[in-house]
């Protein structure tokens, strides 16, 4: 939660400074953030590729463990597309890309704003923050209505960190491993799936 607040403060600070009109001209240059995004993607790749524990986790993983993240992917994309049928301002592809943020709002908002523009980026940021907040708030109800896996499903990528405490508390300690696995798989997919959906359905 602490890092969420820091991240949002940077976003808010940007808005406030822009509105105040105090910023120097060069900071308003669009290509600046495009190059920063390119650099970020390279670094995300390096950090994933160089992670030894990651390959260890994948080696130990059984096929059944993938059921949860696979269900989250299918469900998030389907749910977002169904909603986009009723919202004419958002295309089906953008809606799916937003759903494919899986709650990883920093990276998904950056990617979607870089590729689809500010408006879609803001929706992605808010939608994926809401996802984290819903999961934290609704956790006890989710377990009662849909069973123990539901909080992990709702948490998506955040099941490995920010929503893990409510998963442990309301679904049980024995769900920790599956929550972390599902969260890792989904977090890793965000940088690939979001741009892919935006190209494929544009």
């Amino acid at each position: 939660m602490r890092s969420s607040i820091i991240i949002l403060s940077f976003f808010a600070l940007g808005i406030i400074l822009a509105l105040s009109g105090l910023l120097p001209r060069w900071m308003l240059n669009e290509s600046l953030s495009t190059y920063a995004l390119y650099l970020l993607m390279l670094i995300v790749g390096i950090s994933v590729g160089s992670d030894k524990s990651m390959s260890e986790i994948f080696r130990r993983m059984k096929l059944v463990h993938l059921l949860v993240p696979v269900g989250v992917i299918l469900g998030s994309l389907a749910g977002a597309v169904i909603v986009s049928l009723f919202i004419h301002q958002i295309s089906h592809g953008t809606a799916m890309a937003i759903g494919a943020g899986f709650g990883y709002y920093s990276l998904s908002a950056i990617l979607i704003s870089g590729i689809r523009g500010d408006e879609a980026g803001v929706v992605a940021l808010l939608a994926n923050i809401f996802r984290e907040v819903f999961t934290l708030v609704m956790a006890p109800f989710l377990v009662k209505l849909f069973g123990r896996f539901s909080i992990i499903a709702s948490g998506g990528a955040t099941a490995m960190d920010t929503t893990l405490p409510v998963i442990v508390r309301f679904s049980g300690k024995e769900m920790t491993v599956i929550a972390i696995l599902s969260g890792i798989v989904l977090s890793l997919l965000v940088p690939v799936l979001v741009p892919f959906l935006l190209i494929f359905f544009s």
Binding site: L67, V72, G75, S76, G79, V83, I87, A95, F102, R131
Partner: peptide, 13 residues
């Protein structure tokens, strides 16, 4: 969108 994605995920899982 967030409600859709959450309900979709929970139901499919």
């Amino acid at each position: 969108l967030s409600v859709g994605a959450v309900i979709g995920s929970v139901v499919v899982v």
